[in-house]
Design a protein around this nucleic acid. Structure first.
Length: 822
RNA sequence: GGGCGCUUAGCUCAGUUGGUUUAGAGCGACUGGUUUACACCCAGUAGGUCGGGGGUUCGAAUCCCUCAGCGCCCACCA
């Protein structure tokens, strides 16, 4: 073996061997029975691996490798997402560099161009995923735009349409003038910014508005029903002159109006405000659109027509001022809506779009709505969140969910199975069908929201709408592991889609449950050393590929996992990774030490009676390390069961470095009982490599290989039964074990004592101090034990423990006193 | 406006239902050592009133209240 583990030399090779072995595919695990499955959150097909990917790949790989090694039929299904808006924008940018626009190409050619781009760049992310050591089943890889998933999307759309859950409607939507597309509610970000509040003389009222130009489209005035100031106008329709532009508004009362804010009167603009749209629906107001899809004033804006909205505002305010209609202008902080992709200010607009009705009772769901069922399955614990606090956030979002706008005006994406007669230019008579109807029909030009297909991911990738063996076996998936930032975008949508489509009559009895996953594990965000988000503009990102190159994939994996807790952000910096590179080297050297001594890996428990019966004999460390190993195993398994990946990792680290290397191996060297220790070491290493493998798959596999093992480590079994028998054996030889382990620890103390003795002269002062603090502690223990309340109320074990402590410290005190010659 | 999280050694973080720890780890600092498993090493030292205050309890980093700072999410006050 080389003196140092050269990860660069081995990692790619090891991965290739794994892949060739076919064991990433659970079909090739013949003895495995109980299924375990994870759908990989699909990275963007055109994306590059970033540190966030590295984190989820590590966590999921740990789960999958562990499942595989504990006898499960472990499937980790990889894939990529077409990321409609992002990819569309990317290709548009490339075209721009060529001096072209998408219109030069036309939709068909543009899509060809996108497909071309996607297929060349998909390989990049695939290979980057491999670099992390991800043991996913590439034979089942999917893409959200592949043939099968396209079919799934169409089937899902048609089913929901036929059930009345998808409808076309003229409703107010979030419009991004830059992307020229609608956005879902949660694709809109809210940011405070400084704005002006204009108080306008508005017929008999004063109204406040931050967007004066929209007032040209007002059709109503809202006041509070109890507001004495405006009672006389309620129910009346009045004409209002706004500097020469006359609008007609209906005055109505609604309890939503806050009497205290502004003047207590709202000018209602149904076409350009979400709230006002709701008012309009409720009170039967007309809508007048004064701003169009590109942010330009329409003909309805009278003399302001064809101006850009900000210019129209300036001019309009100017005109109002001249006419003496501006009462005052106040500064105030307003929450504006911004596009989450490009940051443009969102324009609420009324337009004809496709929606999913989340509140509508559905026959398939026994008259419950999508929303109700999605809430229910989490309340009933059919799905549970780790950490559970995110359930509250999920409920809150679900309860307030409005109908989901699923149509997008970008070119790249799933086409809807919707057709219009060629002369139906207003899209008034949609025909929903997979095939183009006979005659002169054109397909709906809008595409579907990316999250529509992403919502189907857990079952579309298993072959749905076909009823496949995979669907029967692996649905619902065991765990959904993803970031908390994506709960609404994705997790919630998968729950909506899964609980609906898997209730279909031909599926219901085939899958075990309709929920898409049983557990949602949410990890935190990776931040820089200062806790800032990693971003290109800050240049504070850590490139996982560069780090793999420098320190190895195992080191990157450990650095992402040790010390983390579910749902909490973590900070990442290079030194951390370097430290874990050292760990891999440490492990390598342990193995090298073993190999050079002629150690053979073995699963056979070393006999205990070989340890000689002498207090200071280093051979006593044999039983000691076995008991440590046994403790490690239960700690490890319990931590993983609770998704405490950080803790399990830390336990492995501490055992390997400190118990095994620093103590046990040091003792081995001092013993002449070579055969015995070789057995112990071969045994401990055999199991330790298995335990470590999910965390550091490369170096453990390589070491395993160095010991000429038959099978790859990745399909070796971590046997619960074995550790039970280790424990049993230790129990059955309980008395002897306890004595031996105790002796081992007394050897440790002996060594420390000798060390102290050696430097006692130089450090007399220090030990005197220590003696003082021990004396003080003894006093406090005595006081505690003299406290009747304590003895009465505390559990017996605690009291006993304190008594034991007292004795131990008394002994320590005596020893120290002896040392100091007092 | 509502909700959530965080605040523990110089830095990054653990700390399970309150009691196996007179508060732990890694990194960094300092002292010493070792060159036949490993300097990507070993032994050790220093460093913390567990954000402040109050309460419950025999016992609180851990539970409750309150205040402060940081961060995040949600939200239709025009």
């Amino acid at each position: 073996m080389d003196k140092r583990y050269d990860f660069k030399k081995f990692e790619d090779e090891i991965y290739a061997q794994w892949e060739e072995s076919g064991y990433f595919n659970p079909d090739n695990l013949p003895d495995a029975k109980e299924p375990f499955s994870i759908s990989m959150p699909p990275p963007n097909a055109t994306g590059m691996l970033h540190i966030g990917h590295a984190l989820f790949l590590t966590l999921q790989d740990i789960m999958v490798r562990h499942a595989r090694m504990t006898g499960k039929k472990a499937l980790w299904l990889p894939g990529t997402d077409h990321a409609a808006i992002a990819t569309n924008a990317k290709v548009e940018k490339i075209l721009k560099e060529e001096g072209k626009t998408k219109y030069d190409l036309g939709q068909e050619k543009f899509i060809e161009r996108v497909d071309e781009y996607v297929s060349t760049s998909q390989d990049t992310i695939r290979n980057q995923i491999r670099k992390m050591g991800s043991s996913c089943d590439w034979s089942r890889e999917r893409y959200t735009m592949d043939e099968g998933l396209t079919k799934a999307v169409q089937t899902a759309f048609i089913d929901m349409y036929n059930d009345g859950l998808i409808y076309q409607g003229n409703r107010i939507v979030n419009w991004c003038p830059h992307c020229e597309s609608t956005l879902a509610d949660d694709e809109v970000e809210h940011k405070d910014h400084n704005a002006q509040l204009y108080y306008i003389k508005y017929g008999p009222f004063i109204i406040a508005t931050s967007r004066p130009e929209t007032k040209l489209g007002d059709t109503g005035v809202a006041v509070h029903p109890d507001d004495a100031r405006y009672q006389e106008y309620v129910g009346k329709t009045i004409d209002v002159d706004l500097a020469g532009h006359t609008i007609t508004v209906k005055v109505f009362a609604d309890p939503e109006v806050d009497q205290e804010f502004g003047s207590g009167v709202i000018g209602v603009t149904p076409a350009h405000s979400v709230v006002d749209f709701d008012f309009a629906e409720k009170h039967g107001l007309e809508t007048i659109q004064v701003i169009d899809e590109k942010g330009i004033m329409t003909d309805k804006a009278g003399k302001y027509a064809s101006l850009e909205a900000p210019d129209a505002r300036k001019q309009f305010v100017n005109d109002l001022e001249t006419a003496g209609l501006i009462e005052k202008i106040e500064d105030y902080v307003q929450a504006t809506s911004l596009c989450y992709r490009c940051g443009s200010v969102i324009e609420p607009l009324i337009s004809k779009q496709w929606f999913i009705a989340v509140n509508k009772p559905a026959d398939r769901l026994n008259g419950k709505s999508l929303k109700q069922v999605s809430i229910e399955v989490v309340k009933n614990d059919e799905i549970h969140f780790v950490p559970s606090r995110f359930e509250k956030i999920y409920f809150h979002w679900m309860e307030n969910l409005r109908d989901w706008c699923i149509s997008r005006q970008i070119w790249f994406g799933h086409r809807m199975p919707v057709w219009y007669a060629k002369n139906d230019t207003k899209k008034e008579k949609p025909i929903v069908s997979k095939e183009k109807p006979e005659g002169d029909f054109v397909q709906e030009s809008d595409t579907l929201d990316t999250w529509f297909s992403a919502g189907l991911w857990t079952f579309s990738t298993l072959g749905w709408p076909e009823i496949t063996n995979d669907l029967k076996t692996y649905y619902p998936t065991s765990v959904m592991e993803t970031g908390y930032d994506i709960i609404f975008f994705w997790v919630a949508r998968m729950i909506i889609m899964g609980t609906y489509h898997m209730e279909k009559e031909n599926i219901r009895d085939v899958v075990k449950e309709s929920v898409p996953f049983k557990t949602v594990y949410l990890h935190g965000l990776v931040r820089d050393r200062l806790g800032r988000k990693m971003s290109k503009s800050l240049g504070n990102g850590i490139d996982p590929l560069e780090m793999i190159e420098k320190y190895g994939a195992d080191a990157v994996r450990l650095s992402l996992v040790i010390g983390i807790t579910p749902g909490n952000d973590l900070r990442m910096f290079e030194d951390k990774i370097k430290g874990y590179r050292n760990f891999a080297t440490k492990l390598w050297n342990i193995a090298r030490f073993a190999k050079e001594r002629g150690v053979k890996l073995t699963s056979e428990i070393p006999t205990l009676e070989k340890a000689p019966d002498k207090t200071d004999n280093p051979d006593n460390f044999g039983p000691w390390i076995l008991s440590e190993l046994s403790g490690l195993y239960s700690n490890y398994e319990n931590s993983l069961k609770e998704y405490n990946f950080g803790q399990a990792g830390e336990t492995l680290y501490t055992f390997t470095w400190h118990s095994l290397a620093d103590w046990y191996i040091e003792m081995c060297k001092k013993s002449e009982n070579v055969d015995y220790h070789n057995h112990v070491l071969g045994y401990v290493l055999y199991w330790l490599l298995k335990l470590l493998h999910p965390y550091t798959p490369f170096v453990t596999e390589k070491i395993w290989n160095e010991f000429d093992q038959k099978n790859p480590l990745m399909v070796e079994q971590l046997s619960d039964k074995h550790f039970k028998s280790l424990e049993d054996k230790m129990d059955s030889e309980n008395k002897e074990m306890k004595v031996l382990i105790k002796r081992a620890s007394s050897v440790k103390q002996e060594i420390e004592k000798k060390r102290k003795q050696a430097d006692i002269d130089e450090n007399k002062e220090k030990y005197t101090k220590e003696l003082e603090s021990i004396a003080a502690y003894i006093k406090s223990l005595e006081k505690k034990l003299a406290n009747k309340q304590f003895v009465k109320n505390a559990p017996k074990e605690v009291v006993e423990r304190e008594q034991q402590k007292l004795e131990d410290f008394k002994q320590k005190k005596e020893e120290l006193e002896k040392l100091l010659g007092e």
